[in-house]
Simulated scan of single mutants.
Amino acid sequence: MEHLTAAIGSLTGSIVRQVTEFAPWLRDHGFRAGVPETLTAIAALTELNLTSIDEVCFAFRSIYARTPAEWGIFPTLFEQYFGIREARLQEKRRLQSDDLLGGTVAGEKAERPTLETVQGILAGFHSSDGERFALRADGQVLKDVVKLTQLAVRTMDAPRGRKWQSRGREKMDLRRTIRSALRHSGEPFKFKMRRRRPDKPRIVLVIDISGSMKPYAPFITSLAWSFTRVRARTQIFLFSTRLLRVTSLIARKGVEGIPYGDLPGLRGGTQIGGALAQLLHRYPSLLQRHTCVIIMSDGFDAGNPEQMHTSMRDLAARVGRVVWMNPLLGEPGYEPTSVGMSMALPYIDAFVNVHDVATWKKAVLSGALRAAAP
C-alpha cells in the first residue's frame, strides 16, 4: 500500500507496517487509537477493495474516529498520512447574498432574518488572507500573562459545585460540630455551618488564526496557554474557514511551538459565522449559562453576514457572557464597521482591545470578564 492503489491479492509487509504506524501517528493528533484499532483495520483490509481509496478511508474512519470532532478531521489526516492527494487551499471569496446558509434542501429557500446595517460597512477582506503560520507562545511574557489570567479567573462567575465547604448558613457541618464540642467536654455546643464550594469557571476560547491575525499570534498563543494553567474548565478552539479543538495541543506544545502541519483542516481565509455555527452544533454541552465565551479576532469575515448574525444571536442566548477581544480596537482611527463586527456587536457583552500584556491587564482590571449573576 504505497498509496493503497496497487492491485494486490494479499496483504504485504508494507501494508501491515503502514497501518501499524498509523495508530501512533493518530495519537499525536489527539486520537485514542491503539492495538485493537490496528488489528481491526488490518482485518478490514482483507475484505476491502484496495483500489478504491474512498472505500478504505471510510472503513478506517469508522474504526478510528470516536467523536464528532475526530470524525470530521479524519479524511484530512488520512490523506496527509498516506499521501493520497495533494492538499489544496480554497480561494477566499465573499459569499453572495443568494448563497444558501448550508444544509437546505434543493429547491427550498433559506429563511433569513432582516438585518440592519450601518453606513460605511467594509468588505470582509484582508491582504494577508490565505496565509498560514505556526503558533508559538512568547516566552518573555508568559509569567505576567499567567498572573493576570489567574486574577481574571478569580473574578469570573462559576456554578455551584457538588462538594461542601465550611462557612455559610445553608447546612450544618455535623462532624466539625461534634469534634468542636468534644474539645470542651461537650460544652459549649456551637454549631459549625458549611456551604457548597463554587465550581471552576467555565471558559471557551475561540481564536482566529487567519493571516490577518499573524502579528498578534505569539501573544494570543501565550494567553491561550495561560488559561490551561489556571483553575478553570477551559476549552480552546482555533478557526479560519473551519473550527478545530486544540485544548490539549495548546497545553502540551504552546510554549515550544505548534507548526501549522499539526493543525489539520485549517486553511487560508476567515469564516467567523461558520466557525461559530460549528461550535453551536458540535459542542452544545460546553455552552451553558455559566460559560464565558472569549472570541479573539479582528472581525474580518468573508463568510455569509446572515450566518454571522444568526450564530452570534444563538450563542449569546445560550451562554452567560460573550467577550470579543479585537487587537485592532486600539489602533488610531479604527472603527468596527466591517461586516463581521457589524453583525456581532449587538450580541457582545464586552468589546475590548487585547494584543499585549498591558492591554490584557487593562481588560482584566476593568472587569470585562466578570459576569453578572445569571
Rank of each mutant, 00 (worst) to 15 (best):
W164E: 05
A358W: 11
S52Y: 04
H29T: 03
L345V: 07
R179K: 10
N353T: 07
A373H: 12
E131G: 06
Q165T: 15
T76F: 09
G320S: 07
V204E: 08
P188G: 11
R202N: 09
A87N: 12
R162E: 10
L4M: 13
T247M: 07
V16C: 08
Q150N: 09
F239T: 07
R321K: 15
A275L: 08
M312L: 15
E47A: 14
S342Y: 01
Q96M: 07
L26V: 02
F74W: 09
D138C: 01
A316Y: 02
I348C: 14
R229G: 00
G274W: 07
W164F: 15
G268H: 04
V206P: 00
M312G: 01
R112K: 15
R267P: 00
V255Y: 10
G299E: 10
G254R: 09
R233W: 00
T228Y: 08
R313V: 01
G269M: 10
P332G: 07
A23C: 01
V364A: 09
R175T: 10
E91N: 06
I295L: 15
E2I: 09
G320E: 05
E187D: 04
R289M: 05
D99G: 00
V204H: 07
R61A: 06
L39C: 06
F300N: 04
D262M: 15
R169D: 06
V16T: 12
I15M: 15
Y347L: 03
R245M: 13
A363S: 10
M156P: 06
L39S: 12
Q119G: 08
E116P: 00
M312T: 04
G186C: 05
D314G: 04
E86N: 02
Q307F: 02
G211W: 03
G107V: 04
G107C: 11
I53E: 09
I220W: 10
P374V: 12
F31G: 01
E306Y: 02
G13E: 09
T234A: 12
P198H: 03
H29G: 00
S366N: 11
S14W: 04
A158L: 03
R179S: 07
V141Y: 04
T234E: 02
T337C: 11
P24G: 13
S226H: 08
T149N: 03
F78C: 00
Q150K: 14
H29R: 14
T40L: 14
L122E: 15
D98C: 04
G268D: 01
V16S: 13
E108D: 13
H29E: 05
R267K: 13
